[in-house]
């Protein structure tokens, strides 16, 4: 088994994939959201509630799942659709017994990889941007941007019993170091 430490994971950069991501499990819903930030929390709560009901989300993971959902939905509304309320953000939730995935699609122009902040090195440490990407890469198992970058799929596998124990130990050391 290979453990990828968060510090190494953080060095990865976001790529826009040429292929669509794999489809996982059963589609629970596809919802269209107006590009209005005040609407996002109700949808995020609904997704978290479904994941908890299906035992796909541990209580201590809730902050992380919320952060990642918040990050991609805010990006779609603010950077993708520029908060133009005539444009929609489409959110789909997929689950099976051992993972969950969300797809988010906005009507924006996408992005170019060059505009993303470089999170490597010391020059980054006081940047006001780019921390959302670090959080996505740290928690999610797969972050798959595709098309022009206006579509993304996040995937998170349910942890096995042993992975949960390792996660708790890593969490403890993270707080202690």
């Amino acid at each position: 088994m290979v453990f990828v430490l968060p510090e190494q994971n953080m060095q990865q950069t976001i790529k826009i994939q040429t292929k669509s991501p794999s489809e996982y499990g059963e589609k629970i819903f596809t919802k269209q959201l107006d590009s209005d930030l005040s609407l996002k929390n109700t949808l995020i709560e609904e997704i978290l509630s479904i994941l908890k009901t299906r035992s796909l989300l541990e209580e201590e993971e809730e902050t992380w799942a919320r952060l990642c959902l918040d990050e991609v939905i805010v990006n779609a509304i603010v950077h993708g659709n520029k908060e133009d309320k005539s444009k929609k953000v489409e959110v789909s939730l997929f689950v099976d017994n051992h993972l969950w995935a969300v797809r988010i699609e906005d009507e924006g122009e996408g992005f170019s990889e060059e505009i993303l902040p470089n999170t490597e090195g010391d020059e980054y440490w006081d940047s006001e941007h780019g921390r959302g990407i670090m959080l996505l890469q740290d928690y999610m198992d797969e972050v798959w941007y595709y098309d022009k970058g206006n579509r993304v799929q996040l995937t998170k596998k349910k942890k096995t019993k042993w992975e949960k124990i390792v996660q708790k130990i890593l969490f403890f050391f993270r707080l202690k170091d």
Binding site: T63, D126, R131, L135, L175
Partner: peptide, 16 residues
């Protein structure tokens, strides 16, 4: 709170 502190750790804000 610890859940937010772990986010600070990942994003290196605990060093700032």
């Amino acid at each position: 709170k610890n859940n937010i502190l772990s986010v600070f750790k990942v994003t290196k804000l605990d060093k700032m």
